[in-house]
Write a protein that binds this DNA or RNA. Structure first.
Lengths: 231, 231
DNA sequence: CGCTCATATTAGGCTACACTAATGTCTCCA
DNA sequence: TGGAGACATTAGTGTAGCCTAATATGAGCG
């Protein structure tokens, strides 16, 4: 009566997909995602999260340690990475092929990621030449669920004199993204750190290509993730 | 406390959007859409439809005459046409820009139409050069909610000797669509009706461009909508 | 060591939307 | 004109997700 041995996964709801993405983000550094952190990220009440946590762990998507938090199971992680792939492929496609700017793709991708088929995502990815990074420099998981893990350091922590490649811009706020774009601070750019003011002051960098300087306040510098170039 | 005079419409749910599209289709010839027709089209139970009909008429989207059926209000019609525009623009975009065939775009568009923003639809439409017809020849409503109304006749009713332009293919079944494509029976093609067998028998047409004949059974001929060319 | 406060969970309720079973209404034909 | 049968509606349930209010837990500090 039912399908054969091959287990047919019953398709996750939009909510479930959002929870899994949030838990992935909050626990990607290895720890637990707490109820209140999830509630904060998704702007839901804590009891709502408690309720969903119960459902997700019954579905086998997360492991719940009461009063401590949750972590994804391998099944949950796979589902989360699938959503992240969708989101990032969509962001890149919208940017490259439909004239979106990197500061306004997020919301569109956020809605579409729940509606597109795997087939469409793979067609978009193929059209884009199987890209590895989204417009903000975040790595795109492969269709098989692998994601590049790179050690990046925040510009705010970089030493004066260091030569860096800007790799990821860790914000989705349109205003900040627009500002970064204006300043030429986008993934792939190479810079040299020439100064840092004390007491959490701003960082000054030279853009190697254009030879011009930029002064970046701490709050912004913290979300610019960089890779150290050979010294 | 609430928004100013400008009435902010509260965003329709996926279900509501589907009902409105169905009601549009069923009542576009002027009559009422009945509960069981809607239930049939959406594959829902009749009581489910009754319940939704109550909600839709409270929302002012439809007019309900008990035991007779429903019709769209102008507000409901606007919402329905907006969905149809989305669907058809999506179908064309997927066909033209992402390698879909006309027989497999329907389901993808069906899901995406609920998730895309108006902005994205307009970008797609602009990319496509503000198209007027989708891949099946159906007219695409304008962003302002106007739709071309053409008098078309079914090939099954065409007179022998008539010269016709095939304009719309009125099915979404992939197998039939593939067959039509193989036969060269696609929108825009010009044909001459050369024969019709009696007792609801098949229609024979010549493809004017290639000069080859096609025999089309009644069931298929009924969904091929044509415009009569000057006699 | 125990208490306080932040955090988590449970209890109870609401909405949207589906379902089946029971009931109402209309139409057409004998 | 009076049913019979087709169709519509109402009644009553269920599930997913959200909420607020009430309660439980645990961790750090006096």
């Amino acid at each position: 009566m039912t399908l054969p041995a091959s287990v047919q996964e019953p398709a996750l709801t939009r909510s479930v997909e959002d929870y899994l993405k949030a838990i992935y983000r909050l626990s990607s550094q290895g720890g637990f995602a707490t109820t209140s952190d999830i509630a904060g990220l998704l702007t839901l009440s804590a009891p709502s999260v408690s309720g969903m946590v119960k459902r997700l762990s019954e579905m086998g998507l997360i492991e719940h340690v009461p009063y401590r938090g949750v972590q994804l199971t391998s099944q949950g992680r796979r589902a989360a990475l699938r959503m992240i792939r969708r989101h990032r492929v969509l962001e890149l496609y919208l940017t490259r092929n439909l004239g979106y700017d990197w500061d306004n793709v997020h919301n569109e991708a956020e809605r579409l990621e729940h509606a597109v088929s795997d087939d469409l995502i793979e067609r978009m990815a193929a059209t884009l030449g199987d890209p590895r990074y989204d417009p903000h420099g975040d790595p795109i998981p492969t269709a098989t669920g692998d994601i590049e893990e790179t050690e990046l350091a925040s510009l705010a922590d970089a030493e004066v004199g260091a030569e860096l490649e800007l790799r990821q811009v860790g914000t989705q706020e349109p205003a900040r993204l627009r500002y970064f774009a204006e300043q030429g601070l986008v993934p792939g750019v190479r810079v040299t750190v020439t100064d840092r003011q004390p007491f959490n002051g701003p960082t000054t960098v030279y853009l190697n290509a254009s030879g011009t300087a930029r002064i970046v306040g701490r709050e912004l510098a913290q979300v610019l993730w960089c890779r150290e170039l050979s010294p």
